[in-house]
């Protein structure tokens, strides 16, 4: 019995782990950190690395939803706009009785989730191309924001936001804690639930998924809703860390979220990948940005390096992308 079991499902091979893209990304991050600590004293200091991970948490949270959407075969270009909405929207929904700010945060997250679900409805029911649908949503939100916030920065203080931005229970920044919890939950959802399997099925072959009885519509709506939710969380975290929100605060995180997903080895064509790769992907991204700042590269070089990196990684995994 034992032996047939191992024929059917061979024991976990150490080589499989060593060859996997998430692990490769972790290695790159580690190598970069070690090399940079030798080259520049202070880079490897605990405080600095902790700061990097804290920055990584912002990108990483936004990448959660993006990972779900990309694995399901779509793309969410409204992540940046939703982040801004939630960062700017909190003061608008704050009310007197809400001492801790928790209600305002919940309302904001609910709104972000609804926005995401609307994206999903557009993609699943109107059959709009994901790029068009989320782009239109981003444009719409951008206008709405300027109308609501009037273009000036808003600041919001509440105990919850303060905790998010500056608390360090047992030395770990609160943002990183939130990220860790959210990551665990999404890894479970993706890899240990039937829902996660449906997401993979949808992205790998939506026709076969439909014929196998997968409810493609509800799954699509759900992944975009998740993307809205995590973008909303990102917005709250940013607001906490920055102390104020302004229109455009979320913009850099759209491309970073996509880059983190791609760097982590998730196929941009959908159907395969894991959030376990996006985690080191997000840290790699902020590390590269920090390194480029350390070596005093100009923003131009920074951008060129960044783009070349995406292209290089794409070429490495190119074989897989031609499978269709």
């Amino acid at each position: 019995m034992r032996s047939t079991e191992t024929v059917r499902f061979p024991k976990f091979q150490r080589r499989t782990l060593l060859m996997s893209r998430p692990f490769l990304t972790v290695l790159i991050v580690a190598a970069l950190w070690i090399a940079a600590s030798f080259a520049k004293p202070g880079f490897g200091a605990f405080g600095h690395l902790r700061y990097l991970v804290e920055l990584g948490a912002v990108v990483g949270l936004a990448a959660i939803g993006q990972t779900f959407v990309v694995i399901a075969g779509g793309i969410d270009l409204s992540v940046g706009a939703i982040i801004t909405v939630s960062a700017v929207g909190v003061p608008l929904v704050s009310f007197a009785g809400d001492e801790s700010g928790a209600f305002a945060a919940l309302i904001t997250l609910a709104a972000a989730t609804v926005i995401g679900a609307l994206n999903g409805i557009g993609v699943a029911l109107l059959r709009a191309h994901p790029m068009i649908m989320t782009l239109a949503m981003a444009t719409f939100l951008q206008g709405l924001l300027i109308l609501l916030a009037g273009g000036s920065a808003v600041s919001a203080q509440s105990p919850l936001l303060e905790w998010l931005g500056s608390a360090r229970p047992t030395g770990v920044p609160a943002g990183v804690l939130v990220w860790a919890v959210a990551s665990t939950l999404s890894l479970i959802a993706l890899h240990a639930t039937p829902f996660g399997a449906r997401v993979f099925a949808l992205g790998a072959n939506s026709l076969a998924a439909t014929l196998s009885g997968v409810n493609v519509r509800s799954t699509t709506v759900a992944v975009y809703a998740i993307s809205g939710l995590t973008a909303g969380m990102t917005g709250l975290l940013l607001l906490g860390m920055n102390g104020q929100g302004y229109v455009g605060i979320g913009d850099p995180y759209l491309l970073s979220s996509i880059a983190a997903v791609v760097l982590g080895g998730t196929s941009i064509l959908g159907g395969s990948g894991t959030y376990a790769g996006s985690i080191p992907g997000a840290v790699l991204l902020v590390t590269i940005t920090a390194l480029i700042t350390v070596v005093n590269a100009s923003p131009g070089w920074r951008s060129i390096l960044f783009g070349s990196l995406i292209l290089a990684l794409l070429l490495v995994s190119g074989r897989e992308s031609r499978r269709r």
Partner: peptide, 26 residues
């Protein structure tokens, strides 16, 4: 020629070309 997805290639190109523009005129 390499059969890569246009969305990601042009996303990368937007960084590279945008970076080049910043180099030419910071």
């Amino acid at each position: 020629r390499l059969g890569l997805p246009a969305i990601v290639v042009t996303l990368a190109a937007s960084f590279i070309v945008g970076g080049a523009a910043l180099l030419i005129l910071p």
